[in-house]
Write a protein that binds this DNA or RNA. Structure first.
Length: 705
DNA sequence: GATGCGCATGTGTAGACAGCATGTC
DNA sequence: CTACACATGCGCATC
């Protein structure tokens, strides 16, 4: 880590930049560059030097990327900015828009957007998620060959077991395709990583707001906070989190509390709220107007009135957005959240409390492990609002003084873990090989080995998996052997659909040998693949799940305990989606299966993709009867309707509820809508009816939705 | 016989990427 | 690599 000597600032005026660029910076209020930005420029950012910028959260890395891209693009180049989350893509896209005054065209693509990918060729800068870019590469989008500058944001995601392998693959291709700028949280092996990237490391431990970190632990009948600067505080109360939260609010700050489960987050929010008075705000009425599901409103209403909320992925997107924006505008004083808020969009608070440093491990039953230091830094880094707070404070709650010392050493005073390859698993590596062959194939085995050797994997791990991957992919007919390795039409389709080869293989295996099954059988099969959503199954509901099972499945129940748990999850996902396409009301599904609105959304979204993929996998395999069933299922999953409503939901603005209303009143098709305008208006109301009729006319001509 | 307590036992557990449809973010 | 917090139920002492 660089010492204080390198903490220099430069003014924008000093920079060798186009005057128009400087003008835009000044318009934004940027008159000087912070130490991270200054160092990046010193190391050659504007001269096309490859860099790895590793610095804390909120240290101004985005501006580094902007300057790098602008200087590249104004010289006639084309750049892609890659991020790990859709929400982040949106955030970066909004920021980059300000460069359009220079004539720089900025576009965005991710699963959120409808995309004719070829359209992206008209932009100078394209913001994308890693998976979307991977998909574009596999499909060989022609415009990608013009891209010669890649910004890899949050590359430390490489350490994520599930998504890291994709980022590793993107990094290799970026290295091969041109210049790159990698942005990362601070990592301990930055020299090794920079070396891997062929980049110069820019490593500065600088934050815009000072950060005090501490441990919070019981001492006698009080709680003691020991900060890393040596200062000590005591707070009184029964619960350490509540006590410290109240102390921070009294000092006029906002508090962000991280808990390791939804239940804990909700319970903490309620506990804090008990000590706060009701205040005037418009949040509860906003909840009502926004048509939020009952359960969410009832849970949050009494808390919001006291300036408190909980936040996790079980909540609907709407509710989460409402809470985030209320916190930003200071209408909320406290949010108790799961890690959603640590990784996602920027939402700082003066005080951050990390309530747990253990987390349940889904893969090993009954095992809880300590969270990585990197994640601690991610959370504590949210403390301190630039421009508002003089300094931020982050405390981590521990059991006793002895633990406090250990935790202080491990989390506060130490470096985050090393960045390591996660390609060393069949699930990740086989998919990686399929992707490489899709984007760069056909390849000889030597060429493939060369490609893989450019990853972060060690030689031994690579050798262990390469032959296995080639054998498996060949045996299962994804790849054909010849002078070179190339994809079969099946392999090509699977790569395009972006499903894991194990997903495709399971679909292939089961449907090749099965007769037509019931809808539940198809859904449960898809829910058994590695790409499927996972839901938790309570002991009490096992029996009920079996009761609902009224037809034969294609995937048999396993003996093994862990696998049985996965089986129950797949059965539950299948049943949820079956209810969904049978038009059970959302509220009822949430109640029956004890899931949140956000969970239902995620399940439907993923199963939409999987039914679509299953349909196309069957098509390419010549399983046309299964394909038909899956295609119909896909259409129904998309909108959550039975078959008879499929025509009506083609109309924009008509979803499952309105379609049912119209149908039951005898308006049963797009044509019926157009033929009975008065009836439609009487069912849906004059204004809505009018627009539905208009949209129906467009639907008829084959346009949109 | 109702109430309250300590203890043993039971229970559940974070998040979020990908295809495609329209007109072109 | 095999944890936690919290909820529930029980036996027991107490009034």
């Amino acid at each position: 880590m660089k010492g204080l000597s390198s903490l220099k600032w430069t003014t924008v005026d000093e920079l060798e930049l186009d005057e128009k660029v400087k003008g835009i910076l000044k318009e934004r209020g940027v008159i000087r560059l912070n130490p991270v930005q200054t160092e990046a420029i010193k190391k050659g950012l504007l001269k096309g030097k490859r860099l790895l910028v590793a610095s804390p959260t909120a240290s101004g890395k985005t501006l580094v990327a902007e300057l790098g891209m602008i200087s590249h693009v104004t010289n006639g180049g084309k750049a892609v900015y890659v991020v790990p989350l859709r929400a982040l893509a949106q955030e970066k896209y909004d920021t980059l828009k300000s460069w359009e005054k220079l004539g720089v065209k900025v576009g965005i693509t991710s699963g959120d957007y409808d995309s004719d990918d070829e359209w992206l060729r008209y932009y100078d800068i394209v913001v994308s998620t890693y998976e979307k870019l991977d998909s574009l590469w596999r499909r060989r989008a022609t415009w990608l060959s013009q891209v010669n500058y890649y910004v890899l944001d949050e590359v430390h995601y490489i350490n994520d077991g599930e998504r890291g392998p994709v980022i590793e693959g993107i990094t290799i291709r970026s290295k091969r395709a041109g210049n790159l700028l990698a942005l990362s949280a601070t990592v301990s092996n930055y020299v090794e990583i920079a070396d891997w990237l062929g980049a110069e490391p820019v490593v500065i431990d600088w934050r815009p707001v000072k950060l005090r970190e501490g441990v919070l632990f019981p001492e006698g009948r009080r709680f003691r906070v020991q900060f890393d600067d040596g200062s000590i505080e005591t707070v009184k109360g029964v619960d350490p989190i509540v006590a410290f939260t109240l102390r921070s609010i009294e000092a006029g700050g906002q508090v962000l509390i991280f808990r390791n489960s939804r239940r804990n987050a909700e319970a903490t929010a309620r506990r804090v709220a008990e000590f706060l008075d009701e205040t005037e705000n418009d949040l509860t009425s906003a909840l009502n107007e926004e048509d939020v599901v009952n359960e969410e409103r009832e849970g949050l209403e009494p808390l919001l009135r006291r300036g408190v909320a909980y936040h996790h992925a079980g909540l609907s997107k709407r509710t989460r957005d409402l809470i985030e924006s209320a916190f930003r505008t200071r209408r909320l004083k406290v949010i108790a959240a799961t890690p959603t808020l640590a990784a996602g969009v920027n939402l700082p608070a003066r005080t951050v409390i990390i309530g747990d440093y253990h987390r349940y491990n889904r893969k090993v039953l009954g095992f809880q492990e300590e969270i990585p230091v990197m994640e601690y830094k991610q959370m504590s880094g949210r403390a301190g609002r630039p421009g508002f707070d003089d300094s931020g404070e982050a405390v981590i709650v521990v059991r006793n003084a002895r633990e406090a010392e250990r935790v202080m050493k491990k989390y506060v005073l130490s470096q985050p873990e090393e960045l390591k390859s996660r390609l060393g698993s069949e699930l990740a590596f086989f998919s990686f090989v399929l992707g490489v062959l899709a984007s760069d194939g056909p390849l000889t085995e030597m060429e493939l080995r060369k490609f893989a050797s450019e990853s972060l994997m060690t030689r031994e791990v690579l050798e262990r998996y390469l032959d296995r991957a080639i054998n498996w992919l060949t045996e299962r007919e994804f790849v054909k052997l010849g002078r070179k390795l190339s994809l079969t039409s099946f392999g090509r389709r699977v790569a395009d659909l972006y499903v894991n080869p194990f997903t495709a293989d399971l679909i292939k295996e089961k449907l090749t040998k099965s007769e037509l099954g019931c809808n539940l059988a198809y859904l449960q099969l898809l829910a058994s693949t590695p790409d499927a959503p996972v839901v938790s199954v309570g002991r009490y509901e096992e029996d009920r799940l079996y009761d609902e099972l009224d037809c034969e499945l294609m995937v048999e129940e396993p003996e093994d305990e862990t696998e049985r748990y996965e089986f129950l999850s797949s059965l539950k996902v299948g049943l949820i989606v079956r209810d969904w396409i049978n038009e059970e009301p959302e509220e009822k599904i949430l109640e029956t299966y004890n899931v949140g609105s956000g969970d239902l959304n995620a399940v439907v979204e993923t199963m939409d993709w999987l039914t679509y993929s299953g349909h196309h996998v069957c098509n390419v395999l010549g399983l046309s009867e299964h394909a038909k069933r899956l295609s119909l299922l896909n259409a129904r999953v998309k909108d959550g309707v039975s078959e008879e409503l499929l025509d009506l939901v083609k109309i924009r603005g008509v979803g499952r509820k309105r379609a049912r209303l119209l149908y039951d009143s005898g308006v049963r098709s797009v044509l019926d809508v157009l033929a009975n305008p008065e009836k439609v208006k009487s069912i849906l109301g004059a204004r809505l009816g009018e627009s539905v009729i208009e949209q129906a006319a467009r639907a008829l001509t084959g346009l949109h939705k």
